[in-house]
Every structure is written in structure tokens, then in C-alpha cells.
């Protein structure tokens, strides 16, 4: 009985402290977002650093996000092909797969991949700079870490997350076309036509608009946990893990909220 009581006490203390930490992190990330927004329009502008981050964070992620999208398009086509064939609905596969990729799977899977690759990379890089006093050196040399470190990364993610998603959408649909023509005997031209005709602009906008928010979440979370790093290499590891876990969770939560907002808007139009 006594041991159970102790265990419950310990668990509740840990839960409360984890909640406080979460609230503190949320507040800190909001402060960083505010400071970033304020610094965004003030000189100096580091355009070259921004371009470099676009290359490092966006262009270098394309292979990962493309493989994910290709595989998703192929798997979805196979699964729906198999399932709908039983009900004679095989010809609906292009529309269903296209809609799923554009509205949901393209954005969410691309951004979860980015949260893993880019979020961890940002947190590890900034965390290493923090523990080796390079962030202090930026300040001591009369420059602003937010301008030099945070803005190029956050801005690059804000712009590159939608770009990567757009590319992933295209690759995903082509993956579907490829498998449909080989495995389901659906001609590529028919698949392509059905996938395009069946979709509306709003389907594309629903998916792509969410990725601007996801990009911001990944950029800010990576930078925030990187800048909070304490305690050497172990601290860098912890920051990296926290950045990935937090940004992935926030992306999934934001996905639901934004989907719901779009759902309300679309219902209003009907």
C-alpha cells in the first residue's frame, strides 16, 4: 500500500513537472516566434544564408520526401485497387488516390519526414553551436543570432515545406499511375485524366495551405530546442529528440485543426 502511494506520488509529481515543462516550452517558442517576426523586417538581411538554408533544408530533403510520396502513391493504388475491385469500383482508384494525396497524405507525410530530417538537423546544429559558445560569439561580435541563425532556417522551412509537398504530390500521383498501369491494368492516360478532372483547386489549396503552418512549426521548434540546449553533447542529443518529438506531434495536431477549419469553410460554401 505504502509503495503504491509512493509510486503514485512520484508519477503525479513527474506528470506535473512535465506539464510545467511543456507550458514553459510553449511560451518560449511563442516568444521566439514573436522575436523572429519582429526581426524579419529589420536590417541587415542575410539573403545568402537564407538561400543556403533553402538548399540544405529543402533541396537536400527532396529525395526523402519523394521516396515517401512515391511509395505512398504506389501502396494506396494497390490497396484501393484490391479493395474496390471487389465492388467493381476499380475505376475510382485514380480519383480516390489523387484526392487522398493532395488533401492529406502528401502534406502530412512530407512534413513528418521534414520534421524528422530537418527538425533534428536544425536542433543538433544550433545546439552544438550553443554548447561551443558560438551563439554567444555571434552576440559578442555585435550580431543577432535570431537574424543570422533563426530567420534563415524558419523562412526556408516556411517556403520550402509547401514546395517539397507540391513535388511530393506530383511524385505520389505518378507512383499511382505507374502501379495502376502495371498491376491494375488501368491505362496511364485514363488514370491521369481521372485524377486531374476529379480534383478541384480547393483540394490542392487545402493540402498546400497547411504546409506553410507545418513549415513554421518545424523551423521554430528546431531553432527553439537548439537554442535551449545545455550541458554538452548529451544536451545536444536531448534537444534533437525533443525537437523531433515536439514538431511531429504539433504537425499532427495542427493538421487536425486546420483540416477542421477548412472543413467548416467548405461546408459553408455548399
Amino acid at each position: 500500500m505504502e509503495k503504491t502511494k509512493q509510486l503514485l506520488n512520484h508519477t503525479s509529481r513527474r506528470s506535473v513537472s512535465a506539464m510545467f515543462r511543456a507550458v514553459e516550452s510553449f511560451g518560449g517558442a511563442m516568444n521566439l516566434t514573436y522575436a523572429t517576426a519582429r526581426a524579419l523586417f529589420k536590417r541587415p538581411f542575410y539573403f545568402r544564408l537564407f538561400l543556403d538554408q533553402c538548399y540544405q533544408l529543402g533541396f537536400k530533403s527532396l529525395s526523402l520526401t519523394s521516396i515517401t510520396a512515391l511509395s505512398t502513391g504506389m501502396v494506396m493504388t494497390l490497396q484501393f485497387g484490391l479493395g474496390l475491385e471487389r465492388f467493381g469500383g476499380k475505376l475510382y482508384v485514380p480519383k480516390i488516390v489523387g484526392l487522398s494525396i493532395l488533401r492529406e497524405l502528401g502534406p502530412i507525410l512530407t512534413c513528418l519526414m521534414l520534421a524528422g530530417r530537418v527538425g533534428s538537423g536544425i536542433a543538433a546544429e544550433i545546439g552544438s553551436m550553443k554548447v561551443t559558445q558560438q551563439i554567444d560569439a555571434i552576440r559578442a561580435l555585435g550580431t543577432d543570432p535570431i537574424k543570422r541563425i533563426v530567420i534563415p532556417r524558419v523562412l526556408a522551412m516556411f517556403i520550402l515545406a509547401p514546395m517539397c509537398t507540391l513535388f511530393a504530390d506530383i511524385v505520389g500521383i505518378f507512383g499511382g499511375i505507374f502501379i495502376a498501369s502495371i498491376e491494375l491494368n488501368i491505362p496511364a492516360s485514363f488514370y491521369f485524366h481521372e485524377a486531374l478532372v476529379g480534383l478541384r483547386m480547393v483540394d490542392f489549396l487545402v493540402g498546400i495551405s497547411k504546409t506553410f503552418v507545418f513549415g513554421l512549426i518545424i523551423g521554430i521548434t528546431g531553432c527553439y530546442f537548439g537554442l535551449q540546449t545545455e550541458g554538452g553533447t548529451q544536451g545536444v542529443g536531448q534537444s534533437t529528440t525533443r525537437a523531433v518529438v515536439t514538431s511531429s506531434s504539433l504537425v499532427v495536431i495542427a493538421d487536425f485543426i486546420l483540416t477542421k477549419v477548412w472543413w467548416i469553410y467548405e461546408r459553408g460554401l455548399q
Binding site: T132, Q133, Q134, D136, A140, G142, D144
Partner: peptide, 23 residues
Amino acid sequence: GEEQLVDVRKRIAYCFQYGALFD
């Protein structure tokens, strides 16, 4: 604030323990 400290930091330099060079 950080922005106003820029002028001070042009006149006062800091040498970090391990150099803190940008790697």
C-alpha cells in the same frame, strides 16, 4: 537591449575560452 549593445560590443571584444570559432 541587444540592439543598443551592438555599439558597446564594437568597442569591447570577448575572447572565449575555447575560441568559439564558427566551425
